[in-house]
Design a binder for these strands. Sequence first.
DNA 1: CGCACGAGGTGAAACGTTTCACCGTCGACG
DNA 2: CGTCGACGGTGAAACGTTTCACCTCGTGCG
Lengths: 337, 337
Amino acid sequence: MAKLEDVAREAGVSIASASYALSGGKPVSAALRRRVLDAATRVGYVPHRQARTLRTGRSQTFGVVLPDLVNPFFTALLQAIERAARESGYGTLVAGGGGDGASEAAALDLLAEHRVDGLVWVPAGDPGAIPQVPTVTVDRAAPDCDGVAADHDEAGRLVARHLRGAGRRRPVVLHGPSDVPTARARSRGFRDAWTGEIAFEAEVPFDHRIPAAVVRRLADAEADYDAVACANDAVALGVLRTLQRSGRRVPTQVAVVGVDDIAFAELAEPPLTTVRQPVDALGAEAVRLLTDRLAGVGGPARRVTLPVRLVVRASSPASPAGAARTDGGPGARWAAR
Amino acid sequence: MAKLEDVAREAGVSIASASYALSGGKPVSAALRRRVLDAATRVGYVPHRQARTLRTGRSQTFGVVLPDLVNPFFTALLQAIERAARESGYGTLVAGGGGDGASEAAALDLLAEHRVDGLVWVPAGDPGAIPQVPTVTVDRAAPDCDGVAADHDEAGRLVARHLRGAGRRRPVVLHGPSDVPTARARSRGFRDAWTGEIAFEAEVPFDHRIPAAVVRRLADAEADYDAVACANDAVALGVLRTLQRSGRRVPTQVAVVGVDDIAFAELAEPPLTTVRQPVDALGAEAVRLLTDRLAGVGGPARRVTLPVRLVVRASSPASPAGAARTDGGPGARWAAR
DNA sequence: CGCACGAGGTGAAACGTTTCACCGTCGACG
DNA sequence: CGTCGACGGTGAAACGTTTCACCTCGTGCG
């Protein structure tokens, strides 16, 4: 591949001049700039970022570490981060941890070796040591580390108040993994705002595969509940299927609520009521925090909390009356025929 | 960050010896190896991959360019590629194109500047020039370029035969974008194997947002069709919603079939019949082709085609009888109460 | 005993950039 | 007319590795 030397030779100038002309590191005569630019396109110059990194100590690259690439919430986040980074002139190196601590550590190491300028990190669980690279956590906080997250407490409260307002009396609460801070925050928020009874609670993985024990309790004909508050949308979609298999009507008999607002939430049948996380804003804010730090902004770790929003859909309408009215699933129509 | 020189000093040996001891580029006495390894952990050595790249000309990194990070099929693929790459000792640099040609070209350039050793590329449309880096396309072929793809012709045929076998007579066919080779292959396969009537055909984007014109035709009470063959699962999920809104029963009145088998296909209501693409194998095979090339395997461009498999679920049961029997959606049960 | 050879180590060049220090020339000003 | 500064440009060092060529012992064999 063509290098700077080739450009310089082609343009008949020194390597230094070619560099200055291309990077603008130092003012240069218009004629020379022109000549160099032409030469560069002529020989097909491709700058060598690694060499630049070596010399300057900056790679113009952010690393992103995610617990999992299957959950659409994370990939939406990744896309947002990638776009924001690109707009700030940074590339993105992605390392998907396998969800477990070991491969997460490996991913962090790999990125450190690549000398990323900064790290956007969604810790898989309670984070241990934070990397020595400038880092911002997303969605889950780490001590002494800039972080941005949606307001998960509020998300929990919104769900509780919504169910209450919709006239539900005995919800099932499916908590996320207790070693995930956001899961704890949502649970906390829910408990703060929910004063009445609870049918039962259980801890489930952030996944659409509902544990068999929970499936049994949900399917139990004796079980008395009229709502399921789910740890996230993936769980909610799994619950939706479980309920339908066990013959319960959603939302007339049971309301289902998730959190995240992934793309498939509105494609579910019935469409899923959920709490939307501001993914684009999360990504943009993470990149902003990082670039700030790199620009030399000092001070203690900053925490940014972004607002969430309840999105009411048919799986849990705003009121019981609404439930009857909007229970527009295939079942309703079929029965009406 | 600690560098090789620090390790060498700490161990009391030359830089060269330290390098050999750590990389194994040359046999070295056990005692020295031990001393260097200890020193390395003591000073917290982090190798500088960029420097290594500069010297060796290999970055031990693959670039991955995807048209879109929202479609779960691509993210599943990404995960497979990332894992396979890691197992071969390669890191992964991801650049999600925005789907359009311009940002795709930008992504390819960025990766070229990062001097990735190879490129795994899912072209957004018909690929123009292929990069000068060793490249393997996935899912969509490019001329003179190694490629791996599922058997999309067969996928189309499987759908056609399945619908026929299930007793469907007049399907709607929703083709993917005609500038995407795989979409054309599926359509071709379907047409090859389908001999009867077709209600109507239309071209739709690979997306769950069904164009308004198509929605109207599907919802038209006069429209006479008993199946919808969809370009992929995202489209199928969108169609499912459209049909349910327009009051058609799936699968009793209309069967719906997708392609890809994304995770949400089985969470749909009713669960989606689809053709499964072997994502893990696609990723592994892509990495294998690439590492082969890097190992010096020459010869003309190779094309690998991997088999697909029909996955029958409730949205389109195997037989009409089955339809009646397995129409186990909430509606059926509800009606039975 | 002398020589050659192998094992174990080291010095230094090279990879492609950026950037500091320097150099020549020309115009302006004292 | 001499000097100085600005301007436009260049040479070369440095970033952290790898790796080639070389060097120095110790040892085994003739």
